[in-house]
Amino acid sequence: MSVEKAVFGTLPDGREAALYTLRARSGMTLVTTPYGCRIIRLLVPDRLGRLGDVILGHRTLEEYFGADYHGAFIGRYANRIGGAQFVLDGKTYSLPANDGANTLHGGPGGYHQVLWEASVQEEGDEPSITYTYESPDGEEGFPGSLKLQVTYTLKKDNTLSLEYTGTSDQATPFNPTNHAFFNLSGDHQKEVLSTWLQLNAEETTTVSDGLIPDGNIVSTLGGPLDFTAGKELGKDMFADDHLIQLCGGFDHNLCIKGEGFRQFGEAWDPDSCRAMEIWSDLPGVQLYTFNSVDEGILGKDGLPMKPHTAFCLETQFYPDSVHHENFPFQYLQPGQPFTTRTEYRFSVKK
Rank of each mutant, 00 (worst) to 15 (best):
L88P: 13
G186R: 08
K5P: 06
D13N: 15
F261P: 09
T205S: 03
V31L: 04
F142A: 14
D157M: 11
Q121F: 00
L254C: 00
K350A: 03
L22R: 01
I297S: 14
I256A: 01
H323I: 04
S26A: 08
N216A: 14
K350R: 14
K231L: 10
G284V: 01
N200T: 02
F290Q: 12
D137K: 12
L197R: 04
Q113N: 15
N79S: 12
L298A: 09
V293W: 03
E277D: 13
T205N: 01
T206I: 09
A239I: 05
N98F: 07
G27I: 07
D294G: 11
T10H: 06
T165E: 14
S219M: 02
D99S: 14
E343N: 05
I244D: 01
G71T: 02
G36V: 02
K350D: 02
T159Y: 07
F346R: 13
N216F: 10
C37D: 07
G109C: 04
T339I: 00
P127S: 11
E62I: 08
K349F: 04
F250E: 03
F238Q: 13
F142Q: 11
L11C: 08
V120C: 00
E16I: 04
V120I: 02
S347T: 05
Y69R: 04
N175Y: 09
N183D: 15
L243V: 10
T165Q: 14
L221Y: 08
G223Y: 03
S145D: 07
P319V: 01
G223K: 05
A275V: 12
A17K: 04
V87M: 03
G109L: 02
